[in-house]
Write a protein that binds this DNA or RNA. Structure first.
Lengths: 332, 332
DNA sequence: ATTATTACCGCAAACGTTTGCGGTAATAAT
DNA sequence: ATTATTACCGCAAACGTTTGCGGTAATAAT
């Protein structure tokens, strides 16, 4: 366990003061080029790097962003995080990721840690059980901007970056209308989640506003297995009539596909399928599933942009919503 | 931007010294219960939390692990990381995740940051281009244990945690033998990766040692699309004969399934499929794909256990290899 | 030859902790 | 009534930086 190089050691070796070394390494104009040269040389030789704890204790600022997510296994997060990281690096920030395991207690600990470490900013997708936004406001009090994404709390004066729930649902519904399908089964997730409500509402509104007669049935499924069962019974109900199934999420799509394969149905001939997705699952099937895309990439750039403004002093709260687009796969 | 509570403020308010406050909060026996009570009360009231930078500067130890991965979109990582986190929490450690984007340069920066922050330990899956292990040895010099997992460098005296490449390939090959299939197509990934070599070697060895006459053909595919093409041409070659396809990875499985669906083949009747996987992709199909599992969960526990021993002073390098098991899905 | 400017550097305090050591008042032992 | 013990607390240094301020020697201006 060898000791780390410090300013003090450089100073002693070169018979100068610690302040001089510190200033030389920061290229301060007060220091002569000759001493700067000597100091930089020695520093490079012994591989000096400033102790971040000492620096932070003194200066109270670090260049780090924290991203907090409930889980890692999510393609949307993946693209969002990649995007943020790439952009943050350009601004000289590094980012690390915390995982809350969808546990509000752990989330709280993570937030506290972010606060104590005085990170420059926090991007967070909250737990499904997160109700209390006080801890987030507290971060703000300490001058740490918080930007919510994907799973956002119901809070007016927060910065939020949302996937295009509404637009995606609209695109999917429009696609169904264009196909002239008569019977539609919509499968949605947890009815308590705002994402579900928005998608449900928009989907229904668009389908009902179209001047076609559509028999629309909607149900909620809390798991892939449940979605599978729903489809199996629906297939019996709609026997003989062409049915289009709308899947609100990848998880539901997975269950639906299980049922479709189990029954040996071909799409788009026997049945129509359309989904909202980040694009991974839909591409596993043939024909590929048609979906309204919710990619995190552009959103990440927007989020970081918003963050930089917050750091620059903007206290203006804003909700940014991405646009979606339809990816035709041939499943409807 | 309100100021943080500090020991000094508590001390001033209560007319005691900073040392007394510090000791009281740590339940030091030198402090009377009465003063302890007062101090703890005030600390709770103003929500005092020690400044981690000051603490670390003084004590040189934090209770944090870093996990470094090339990418987040990987189910094996997901289970491995979950497992590590869960276990680490029990030991009072928190963990954060760094993402190298498979870029050796970024990886280097992350390692440096880990070193400067004197994290308690690093779990890392290296970049595919990482050749130089010097930076890792340097961490060791500073007393920071490094445990490699999944993508590990060729280095004898390192702690490594590996998925059960050999065992998984063996299980898959044995399953094929048991089914008595005559024609086998093995599709493997990048032939330069050690993981590919091990799986290839074992798979071939087991199939050839079985005293059955098997026509085995193996190819490498660097993408899902390539795997799909391979299957399409193979189906023409093996026309009329029952074929079993072994997929070394999820990516290859995805390509294979594309071809199988495109041709409208049913498994296990028309074709047999078996894979090595963490279990997500295989469960999307019906029947589910039979696969040899490479789960990170148990491995994570083992890795953390090894880490705790390293921290306790063990300098003994060890390679831990997980066992795999076959998950029957009905695809062969 | 005195004064003002410039170039260069160091002192010392501060950030917020932890901890060895010593010190006083109260109690217990001679 | 003196000495030894105990209970409780504070001083001060240290961790490794940064930075305002002042200070000296050399140069430029009077």
């Amino acid at each position: 366990m060898k000791p780390s190089p410090t300013l003090k050691k450089i100073a002693a070796q070169l018979n100068v003061s610690i302040s001089t070394v510190s200033r030389a390494l920061k290229d301060h104009p007060d220091i002569s080029i000759e001493t700067k040269r000597k100091i930089n040389e020695l520093a490079a030789l012994i591989e000096y790097d400033p102790n971040p704890y000492a620096v932070n204790l003194r200066t109270h600022n670090n260049k780090e962003f924290a991203i907090v997510v409930p889980s890692l296994s999510n393609f949307f997060y993946h693209s969002f995080i990649s995007s943020i990281e790439e952009e943050a690096r350009k601004h000289g920030y590094s980012v690390f990721i915390y995982r809350s395991s969808n546990d509000p207690q752990i989330e709280l600990e993570i937030l506290k840690s972010c606060r104590l470490k005085r990170v420059s900013g926090v991007f967070i997708s909250v737990t499904t059980e997160t109700k209390d936004i006080a801890p987030f406001l507290k971060l703000d009090e300490y001058g740490i901007p918080v930007i919510f994404f994907d799973k956002v709390p119901a809070c007016e004066l927060c910065n939020k970056i949302c996937v295009a729930d509404e637009h995606a649902a609209l695109l999917a519904a429009s696609a169904i209308l264009k196909k002239g399908v008569q019977n539609v089964l919509g499968i949605f997730g947890d009815p308590n989640m705002s994402i579900t409500q928005v998608r449900y509402h928009t989907f229904h509104k668009v389908l009902n506003e179209g001047n076609q007669k559509i028999q629309l049935q909607s149900v909620n499924a809390s798991s892939a297995d449940e979605a599978e069962q729903i489809v199996l019974t629906a297939l019996a109900d709609f026997k003989g009539r062409y049915l289009a199934i709308f899947c609100m999420s990848d998880e539901i799509l997975a269950g639906v596909m299980k049922a479709v394969q189990r029954k040996g149905l071909k799409f788009p001939q026997d049945i129509g399928i359309i989904s909202i997705s980040d694009g991974m699952i839909p591409k596993l099937f043939y024909p590929e599933i048609t979906y309204a895309e919710t990619s995190g990439f552009k959103l990440g750039k927007l989020a970081l942009n918003r963050m930089m403004r917050c750091i620059a002093g903007s206290s203006f709260a804003q909700t940014i919503i991405d646009e979606s687009h339809l990816v035709e796969g041939g499943s409807i």
